[in-house]
Design a protein around this nucleic acid. Structure first.
Lengths: 218, 218
DNA sequence: TTATTAATTTTGGTATACCTAAAAGTTAAT
DNA sequence: ATTAACTTTTAGGTATACCAAAATTAATAA
């Protein structure tokens, strides 16, 4: 199997399994990777043979220790590059995902560690995602989704789940950037949209968007 | 055809044709790319269909205008990355080639132009090779090979042809770095090896190495 | 010029990573 | 418990990018 293919599967499995606590379905993988489910079945069988995943037919897949290790390496490379692009090269947080998607496959630990060092070994990337260290250790947060918050509560925006340019530009427009403090005003009965206060302005967030914003209770 | 495959062929044709003045043979390509000549024939036929090269059966190949443009883009990316790795990230000139070989395939003009800007839009990379500008314009030098020099002459080291770590470390050892001033002492009758003076020390250079060192007469 | 050597192309074949369509299996709803 | 809906797998197929071996073509030397 080509390295890049392996890396894309393992990274996606990692991202979908929330730190390996969940089993990932073929459908989820097919959707995320934009490929046919039949191709996923095939690939998972090979990854199982390579001992990167435990794939149980018609049930689901999770990473082995070896697979996790590899996945964390790729996640590290991706997040370090995103941070470097934003902090050192002046890119916007809404444009770095696609570039990092390519840069993450460049195989050179010395390079990544050098970038990390220049950045002061950051622990979070520009989207609020934790960056694994060189040994693969990663912080796990007890943050919640905006969709799980309660009215009257005060929260701090800690990260996002969707990394698309469109979504990030939408957040920028409402000042909903990492670190912003918000207060939940009400949750609409009929469509579950959330009305919150951010920078003293009312902002209306759709349930779909609320699923993609990560916050911490204050 | 995969982008990376196209890019590797075009780049190699460019490098072998010395600025498109020479026709490139299949053998040369097979050697440089470490693949079977039969595969080269196949690939060239496709590149011809794609209008990137003019491939004349059993004769040779050269780049079209479109092919040249693409090739220069890849060469630019490669050389900008090499320079960035050396100048900004502290890598040695002997270790950047392999890394740039991967980085050159990352498709993002804004990124390359940003790196170039940080570097002050350099015109030469760490190996003395000229870097095409964003429009594809490239300096052409009238430098000569060390193997073409004459005894008693004074020269300045301007670049290298071989980018392997082994060769570059060998040069480092003898202080034969870019910019170094040398004087040709003699050329051995029986094996054509060159004895030159560099940093006041005598250095003996094999004919093979002399083919890979580019100098300018002073 | 012919023979020899070398380069190139043809032919037939492999592995990878996808695909579609159909079959089998699983889950949920009545 | 049976049907309906969805998911997963199987089976058969494609394009890419390579290969080895044989056939052809070109270049070189006798």
């Amino acid at each position: 199997m080509r390295t890049e293919t392996v890396e894309n599967y393992l990274k996606t499995i990692y991202n979908l399994s929330s730190d390996n606590t969940l089993v990932v379905t073929n459908q989820q993988l097919a959707d995320k990777l934009s490929i046919n489910p039949a191709s996923v079945t095939e690939a998972l069988r090979k990854l199982h043979e390579l001992k990167y995943v435990i794939y149980e037919k018609s049930y689901g897949t999770r990473l082995t220790t070896a697979g996790s290790k590899l996945a964390l390496g790729i996640v590290r490379r991706h997040r370090i590059w995103e941070t470097y692009l934003v902090k050192e090269l002046g890119f916007g947080w809404d444009e770095v995902h696609v570039i990092a998607e390519e840069l993450e496959h460049v195989q050179n630990d010395k390079l990544i560690n050098k970038l990390a060092e220049i950045l002061g070994n950051p622990v979070y990337d520009p989207h609020g995602d934790p960056i694994p260290d060189a040994k693969g250790k990663i912080l796990k947060s007890n943050f919640i989704k905006l969709s799980e918050t309660k009215p009257k509560g005060n929260y701090k925006v800690m990260g996002v789940i969707d990394h698309s340019t469109a979504f990030l530009k939408y957040l920028d427009k409402h000042q909903l950037i990492i670190g912003a403090t918000i207060t939940i005003k009400t949750i609409e009965e009929f469509d579950n949209s959330i009305i919150l206060i951010c920078q003293k302005k009312d902002v209306n967030i759709s349930p779909k968007a609320a699923e993609c914003i990560i916050v911490q209770a204050l």
